[in-house]
Design a protein around this nucleic acid. Structure first.
Lengths: 212, 212
DNA sequence: CCGTAATTTTGCAGTGAGTGTGATATTCTG
DNA sequence: CAGAATATCACACTCACTGCAAAATTACGG
């Protein structure tokens, strides 16, 4: 048993990577909309029909690692120790994510991808849908932390601010030498904001209850 | 001069309304994806090609009033009195919007539209892109209010929470007899949260500056 | 090493959104 | 009512994406 995976699995993984690499190169060269499936297939040396055996749509190539990433986050979030808040879990995860990207020297690639997404409307919409999933998941867990219903406004706001910070981190990264330090600083700032806001809400609701 | 608008303009407006009405009926009956442009064209008694003279895409029909709405909000926001915050302008606008919809008895139609958007991925993505425009605009104006750069984290968070409230309002509306009162209550809660959060940030930055 | 079953790749035909173009019909202007 | 402006339409096209069945590839038992 010399191989951890059979020939089939290895070839599939390899083809998938080839598709991603070729597609991203073409997108960078001539833009997302100006690149056809046929172009990608030719560059990756596969039949156009085969592309759809690997990805359900052209957009999916750009977000090829999202499902994995999201699943990882969800697992960590749901299996976090009882004394850890959802926000803390998010912070830890983000720091690890950034560290990993920098270790692998993928910063340039990530930047390029962000630009592509930013100036292609259909990709931008897709990205927002992805962020929406983060938002939903976070709302649910934040609600549990705060011991309020999952559709409550404050859980929703807290999650929204956290997601905003996440987006803000992406834009910040190409500014200068980032490292995880800046991310930590940002998340700390968010935490102060959220705790302050929640305290204020608690204060007014207590005052309201006292005056009743 | 018996007519405020020429025959042409009137006919165009009428056709546009017919398209919207027919399309929304079909969407409600058989779903968005199961309805083709050809179906809509037949129902509205126009040529399929003519549809695209009125709307750039099938999705655009569902959001037929967004551009107008957004432009209205932007105007109000940018021309608001100097002593009014962006958040106050948002609150006023929302209350007017809700009041108008209820006066016209369009609540049922709005609900139906929300459902359609919610369970059609492509529409959901489009909706999120629209909300993104609100977010950007609000971020810019909130930043001006707070006297911080437009790409600063706190302006972004404040705007994100405000947008979250906006979304939260839509889901809340079909619960029971809503009226503008609930919207006002929600916005007040958001305001408490935001002010509390911002105060906390100010407090820590002052403490940090003092300890330096 | 070989046959066969499982799986992957591929070609082909088709649906549906959206665009460019030029002809035809309608409305506006003088 | 003639002619300019504009709206509608038919036609042909590109491209994303799907279903299907044949062909190629890989895995496995003997």
């Amino acid at each position: 048993m010399p191989h951890p995976l059979g020939l089939r699995e290895r070839k599939k993984a390899q083809t998938r990577e080839t598709i991603v690499r070729c597609a991203m190169e073409l997108f960078a060269e001539r833009g997302f909309d100006a690149t056809t499936i046929a172009d990608i297939a030719e560059a990756a040396d596969i039949a156009p029909r085969t592309f759809f055996g690997y990805f359900p749509s052209k957009e999916a190539v750009v977000f090829h690692d999202f499902e994995e990433m999201f699943a990882d986050f969800e697992t960590r979030l749901r299996s976090r120790p009882k004394d850890q808040t959802a926000f803390e879990a998010l912070r830890t995860w983000i720091v690890e994510m950034i560290t990993r990207v920098e270790e692998n020297g993928e910063t340039a690639m990530e930047d390029q991808r962000r630009c592509l997404i930013h100036d292609t409307p259909s990709l931008d919409a897709h990205e927002r849908a992805n962020m929406g999933r983060f938002h939903e998941l976070l709302t649910e867990c934040v609600a549990a932390d705060l011991d309020v219903p999952a559709d409550s406004l404050r859980a929703n706001m807290v999650a929204a601010a956290a997601v905003a910070a996440l987006e803000s981190l992406r834009e910040l990264k190409d500014d200068d030498t980032s490292g995880p330090e800046q991310a930590i600083a940002v998340m700390d700032e968010v935490l102060v904001f959220l705790v302050g806001g929640l305290d204020a809400l608690r204060a007014t609701s207590e005052a309201g209850a006292a005056s009743d």
